[in-house]
């Protein structure tokens, strides 16, 4: 087990936001998000949509599961995101011998005080990087359940609040399955989104060789946003307006996963909540004060696919959960723009 504090000894403070500027608070928040995004993108070349999704999950107060083959930059993405924000960061290398107490913490008897003293585990940070999460035993994986969902840890009857913002960025390798423990459904459901980074394009790979050949890009990475700025961003996301047709559309999409003949397990109500929060975050990132059906559509695959269990027939037919979600999106009717006209207005 390896845990270490990655809190950067920040030299220069991040560029301040522009509160009350001419463009207003919304523009200032957008600018902050944009700085974080650029900072992460300077490390992860040619994958703007992945970076954007990671940021969306951060602002939506969710947790991110990065699933891909080794060497494509899973850990790099997690670390870049963590370093770009000036907050406490901890990295947990999940191994088979990792114990739950290593994550949550442990109460040690202090002989001088004749009392138990709580030693916080690695989870007590604002951004927690869980590397190779599927290598830990299910027991250890389960230690994350409470902390991820309720943002608290309960040990020996005492509940300890986790800092805010709090985000778990876990990585796992879908190819190397030997000696791993697939994440249980409950655990998967707690991740707001799953993302695959994928191989970079030839141009991006060339740029990566040129810029990262000598030293790690993380070394030069400086935080570009304070934790409290991220907190403001999260507040702004919470304030994003979601119209009733968009809510209904999100519910329809998630509901369709529960009736789809190729799915053994549909998405939970928590998934609906996550989808909506992610849609709000995406709207805020786009500088909008309201969410659109487009946001729901764009996030449906990363938010829903990892929670779904295809039937045996669908698996035999090589149908992936992603394909099924795309299929559901195609079949679910969008809100009709002309269906909510005021009385008296005529369609023609």
């Amino acid at each position: 087990m390896t845990t270490y504090d990655e809190r950067a000894s920040h030299g220069a403070p991040p560029a301040p936001a522009e509160p009350g500027g001419a463009a207003g608070p919304a523009a200032a928040l957008t600018a902050t998000a944009e700085r974080v995004r650029r900072s992460v993108e300077s490390v992860i070349e040619g994958k703007p949509e992945v970076v954007r999704l990671a940021l969306t999950v951060l602002l939506a107060e969710g947790h991110l599961l990065i699933e891909d083959v080794p060497g494509v930059g899973k850990t790099m993405l997690a670390k870049a995101l963590a370093r770009s924000v000036d907050c406490s960061v901890r990295r947990i290398q999940f191994t088979p011998d990792l114990l739950p107490s290593d994550i949550t913490g442990v109460s040690v008897y202090d002989q001088q005080r004749r009392d138990f003293e709580f030693k916080p585990g690695a989870i007590f940070a604002q951004i927690v990087i869980g590397d190779e999460i599927n290598r830990a035993s299910p027991k250890t994986q389960s230690a994350l359940l409470e902390s991820m969902e309720e943002r608290q840890v309960t040990i020996d009857g005492h509940t300890y609040e986790l800092p805010s913002p709090f985000m778990v960025v876990a990585t796992q390798n879908p190819v190397e399955m030997e000696g791993t423990y697939p994440l249980p459904e409950a655990q998967r459901d707690r991740f707001m989104a799953r993302v695959s980074i994928g191989y970079p394009g030839p141009e991006a790979e060339l740029r990566m060789l040129a810029s990262h050949g000598a030293l790690s890009p993380l070394d030069d990475l400086q935080p570009v946003a304070h934790a409290h700025e991220i907190g403001k961003l999260i507040e702004a996301v919470r304030a994003v307006h979601v119209a009733e047709p968009v809510l209904r559309y999100a519910v329809d999409v998630v509901g369709a996963t529960r009736q789809h003949p190729e799915l053994r397990l549909g998405a939970s109500p928590r998934a609906t909540l996550h989808l909506l929060r992610a849609a709000k975050a995406a709207a805020a990132l786009a500088g909008r004060e309201f969410a659109l059906p487009d946001d729901v559509r764009a996030l449906a695959v990363p938010v829903l696919a990892h929670r779904l269990l295809p039937t045996a027939q669908a698996q035999l037919g090589r149908r992936t959960a992603e394909q099924i979600v795309v299929d559901i999106l195609r079949r679910t009717p969008l809100p009709d723009p002309f269906g909510r006209q005021p009385p008296g207005a005529r369609g023609l």
């Binding site: 307006h241 979601v242 119209a243 047709p245 968009v246 004060e289 309201f290 969410a291 659109l292 059906p293 809100p335 723009p337 909510r340």
Partner: peptide, 9 residues
């Protein structure tokens, strides 16, 4: 404009 009409507060 349509989006604002339909979905904005």
């Amino acid at each position: 404009a349509v989006e604002q009409t339909l979905y904005a507060p």
